[in-house]
């Protein structure tokens, strides 16, 4: 039975949440197509609509390249929609010929029940919400980063044909806002932002007044300072019925990261070995996994060793 699950365990590359230069972004997706052992790649802008035009021209060739490499390509959409032009963009994405990841309920209205994926920014915390979205066209649900193992277990159990995806690597997005904190921290506003978020390919560090690393500012979003890492928990997640395992792009060698997770899923690497190989790739950023254990989110729990 576990072997059966191992075969179906899919690795996905979540949407790029940071603002990289169009060239860096294009090259990243080319490498994903050519070298990353991932089954799905989510493209599209989730955080800020002002970033969208930069990559628009490159999207078609990136999508072609990924598709010809045999990857499922998903168009992720904005997490917070307020402007009329954003509403228009959501409608266009919903009508386009690609699988869509909805991150704002606006997208669900535009989809009119066509098959889609529910992204982590739409709250599906319980079976009531899960069953409702599944009945209305969702074939996969990416659970919110806050969902603890106890909830994941209930949601992945008896999910029927519904696929369940969980973030297993990358900074956890903790909030989104109208204001751009990246601009604000640089003495600017959202309307005059100069795309200052482009300065920080892995986000802008924010510490407490006593100097402890605590948060990462990424445009209008706020993220964990540490990378969420669920390597030791992959087995448990798979047993619960989780089908898709998401890696969120960070400014590290994502090809190596993907290989480590793929090998761990395939049983070629023990979680401990994988972690020992992952650490040098991601230094000096710490790891967090507290949400999974229903504990302080920023904590790193070693209980899996027991």
């Amino acid at each position: 039975m576990p072997n059966e699950n191992a075969k179906t365990a899919k690795l996905t590359l979540g949407p790029l949440l940071h603002h990289w230069t169009p060239e860096a972004r294009r090259d990243f997706y080319f490498r994903a197509a050519d070298e990353m052992p991932v089954d799905s790649v989510y493209v599209g802008e989730v955080i800020c609509s002002k970033r969208e035009p930069f990559f628009q021209d490159h999207l078609p060739e990136v999508i072609d390249r990924l598709k010809s490499a045999g990857k499922e390509v998903v168009m992720s959409t904005l997490a917070l929609v307020t402007q009329p032009r954003e509403v228009k963009a959501i409608r266009e994405a919903a009508d386009a010929d690609l699988i869509v990841e909805a991150n704002d309920v606006a997208c669900l209205e535009a989809l009119h029940g066509r098959p889609h994926i529910i992204g982590p920014f739409i709250n599906v915390f319980n079976e009531g919400a899960r069953d409702f979205v599944a009945k209305n066209g969702a074939f996969r649900v990416v659970l919110p980063v806050e969902a603890p193992a106890t909830s994941i277990k209930v949601l992945a159990d008896n999910a029927g044909k519904l696929e369940i995806e969980v973030l297993v690597f990358g900074k956890q997005t903790l909030s989104i806002a109208m204001r751009c904190y990246h601009a604000r921290a640089n003495g600017l506003t959202k309307d005059s932002c100069q795309f200052v978020c482009g300065l920080d390919p892995n986000g802008l560090n924010a510490t407490t007044v006593t100097g402890d690393d605590i948060l990462t500012i990424n445009g209008t979003s706020t993220m964990s300072n540490g990378y969420g890492v669920l390597l030791h928990e992959l087995d448990a997640l798979r047993t619960m019925g989780v089908t898709h395992f998401r890696l969120s792009p960070q400014a590290v060698d994502m090809v190596d990261v993907a290989r480590l997770f793929r090998d761990t899923l395939d049983g070629k690497l023990a979680p401990g070995e994988a972690e020992a190989k992952l650490r040098p790739l991601t230094e000096p950023v710490p790891y967090v996994n507290g949400f999974y254990y229903g504990r302080v989110g920023l904590s790193w729990n070693d209980r899996h060793a027991a």
Binding site: A79, N123, E146, L174, A177, R179, T222, F291, G294
Partner: peptide
């Protein structure tokens, strides 16, 4: 409330208790 409400996990990130649930 500056954050998009109902999907802000900052407090549980620091306390382990979720405002959402």
């Amino acid at each position: 409330g500056p954050m998009s409400e109902g999907r802000c996990f900052l407090s549980s990130y620091m306390t382990g208790l979720s405002p959402t649930s």
